[in-house]
Design a protein around this nucleic acid. Structure first.
Lengths: 164, 164
DNA sequence: AGCGTATAGTTTGGCATCAAACTAAATGCC
DNA sequence: GGCATTTAGTTTGATGCCAAACTATACGCT
């Protein structure tokens, strides 16, 4: 190496720190995996902040929606639809029951499985959360642009479904 | 409710379980946040499996790449570039130093900060990991299609950068 | 009926992450 | 020089997640 600052190719301020300087991302810059992670994290953080405003946890939203749309769904079905392990659902369901947002009944024909349903209180909370989520979505839509939105979602679905 | 199966609008098998049946995703089906999460998780799982084949952890990959491309980078800069809290980096850096993949030197001018650099061993491991990641990327590229790839990444970057 | 296997949900253990409190060093102001 | 403020990194505590072990029901075969 024959440069003058000994940082191997990156210009920095006199004390070796890039002044909020340009980071070289190398191949990460154009790789899908990395950008997917960064985008997801950013969107999640934003939604998280919004959820806090209404005093709810972001993870509860998809759960309540799926129960609302699929009354009587079992925990295993729910965990699969939601892309989480069934064991992760146990404390969530416990919490939602405790707070009176969902109701949980043993099935008669198969006494291992539960059926989950929203209570009236749960429906009310979901309505509030949905309004909040819609604001978040509008924000994202704005960034993406109406033209590309549909195609964008299609690609996301393909990735979710089609990876081996 | 006056239906016959008591599941409130969802057809199920005789014991109340949808036979790997169609889940109603409601608004989640076309919302960006949810699909972003599902895609990211799927891609991550796939990369995770691949990483295991070469005996590495998926999280190490971006870290090593960023150090390689920005020699002498500090931990705080690194954590920001990588989209993680600086405290998450402490155990990672410890591990990489312990295994002799990176080297860590106090700066002379500011003795609070470290400079991180790859060792020759680290460079070698990164080469292997990069090959592995390229296979993963090819897989994703195939799903996305060459035509939409560039636009897709642009949108992901916009989301990562532009959310408030 | 009885036994082996499969399934629904829970428990446990470990990991990655963040946020807030903390330590040590640097900077600025008087 | 001395003291308040900022900054780099670590520690601690909490959360959410997964995978594997576990419990209890159910199913299937003989």
């Amino acid at each position: 190496m024959h440069g003058t600052n000994g940082t191997g190719g990156r210009l920095r301020g006199r004390n070796g720190l890039a002044a909020a300087g340009p980071i070289n991302f190398g191949p990460l810059a154009y790789w899908v995996g990395f950008n997917l992670r960064m985008a997801q994290e950013a969107a999640f953080q934003a939604f998280s902040r919004r959820s806090q405003e209404i005093g709810e946890s972001p993870g509860r939203f998809a759960t309540l929606t799926l129960i609302a749309r699929n009354p009587g769904i079992s925990q295993t079905e729910l965990s699969q639809a939601n892309g989480r392990d069934k064991s992760s659902l146990t404390p969530v369901v416990e919490d939602l029951v405790r707070r009176g947002l969902i109701e949980r009944k043993r099935m008669d024909s198969d006494r291992r499985t539960y059926r989950l349903n929203l209570t009236p209180a749960g429906k009310k909370v979901l309505t509030t959360m949905t309004r909040c989520a819609r604001r978040h979505e509008r924000n994202l839509d704005h960034l993406i642009g109406a033209r590309d939105r549909k195609r964008f979602i299609q690609i996301l679905k393909k990735i979710a479904a089609g990876i081996e």
